[in-house]
Design a protein around this nucleic acid. Sequence first.
DNA 1: ACGAGAAAATGATCAGATCACTTGGTCATT
DNA 2: AATGACCAAGTGATCTGATCATTTTCTCGT
Lengths: 259, 259
Amino acid sequence: MSAPGGVVRRSLLDDLATSMLTLIADRKLASGDQFESVRSLADRFKVAVPTVREALRRLEATGAVELRHGSGVYVGRHIGRLVLPNPLAPPPSSDRLIELLQARALIEPPVAALAARVRTEAALHRMDKDLTAAAELIAAADHAQLAEVNMDLTAAAELIAAADHAQLAEVNMDFHRSLAQASGNATLAEVVESVTVVNVREQLEILHLHGDRQADLDEHRAIYEAVLAGDPDLAELLTREHLDGVLAVINNRLQHPRS
Amino acid sequence: MSAPGGVVRRSLLDDLATSMLTLIADRKLASGDQFESVRSLADRFKVAVPTVREALRRLEATGAVELRHGSGVYVGRHIGRLVLPNPLAPPPSSDRLIELLQARALIEPPVAALAARVRTEAALHRMDKDLTAAAELIAAADHAQLAEVNMDLTAAAELIAAADHAQLAEVNMDFHRSLAQASGNATLAEVVESVTVVNVREQLEILHLHGDRQADLDEHRAIYEAVLAGDPDLAELLTREHLDGVLAVINNRLQHPRS
DNA sequence: ACGAGAAAATGATCAGATCACTTGGTCATT
DNA sequence: AATGACCAAGTGATCTGATCATTTTCTCGT
């Protein structure tokens, strides 16, 4: 190891960061709760404001806290997590994107199988909600598309369509995350979230390429049914086919690009 | 998305952080390379030093850069990664530890199978090196243990033994990481690293509990052989048995604690 | 050559001030 | 009474400039 002696000289910043984390833990604060102002933290720990801010930035980068201008410091969404998506990840290249999907195709099917065995009640509801939301978005988009046939396709309409795509992509990712949460294993859920959250904007391209929104939804629904029925093998199979299908389409499109 | 309008108010800090990342990318700097001094960065971007430092702390938390007192700013080990281990993760509870191992038992076997299909040359060498290192550590530890039987077991000897344990745990984790890298999929490697790096100190306890270091090594070696031979099914099976075995021991020990 | 000590470079921390944003309350208008 | 404009306090964001601590490099005497 790097420090065989074992005595690690923890800098002031390290101490500050961990102290603030324990402070949050001691107060049993949860995600979204307000923490404490920068100035009062500086007073509390007898350090200067910039130092506190550096420590907070570090915590912020891991999703442990959130700084809202003019409002205060709040407990972040990723507090206490072991695995994180890199918040500063660069837009992945197409190779990296394929790699990412391959990773998902490897990881998520067994997770789906586990979910079918455990199937947490709350997670089932979330999956159902995600499916409903996706269906509504698709219906709205189809409606808009029908309108576009008659009226001229304006730039504004295109913007709205793009926004819808982004929203749909987000909801679809939500389904995968809810599926992972249904496994009852928080660590697995964190892993799956880390590989799905990554750059939604690029994932949007996936959906854009994949294109067949309805088929996507149907496949998701089938996976949901399998989990609901408690059929691990089917859930695993369907999830694998789903992701392999997406992967195949992407591969195809990357070799024969259009537009 | 969260901001339907699409206009995201990027703060000065966001711009700074991404600008510095692109600066690193443009210069084609790699892990370990020296970057630029805080002051010169402040000059370059026309901002004050504390602001630069906040941005750097954010980058530091994701492993993109590293600040060394008195020396300079360097490119970090995790530059460009998508998935990260939380550097501020709290020591996991026993429940969380079991969860973590379950996640590994689910993810790593298919990864091993993929590794057996691809088996990158460099990664095979690394695995071999990890195995050799582990064997040497075990031999050294056994030697020390024999000595302990004769001479009195002093506190110092115990410390050395603990350090050996930690080193061995580290090397064993290295094997799993090298295995994942052999899959040729960087994203998968990052995921596996994220679930293995997590709190080596606690993983140490695992090994401490697991106890049978030689069996562990033998199982690792068997996995290596399967990957080397290009037998995906065997590699997957052995990896699954290995992790399930560890998991079983842990579960057992947690229910019937000793010491 | 070589090692010790000085000097330079660089990160760490501090202090106080000013600007920008959010929030809640006040109060006039309707 | 409900509504909306305005104001003020709280709070984060950024700046300026300085001082301390650590590392690295250079210099110099032996």
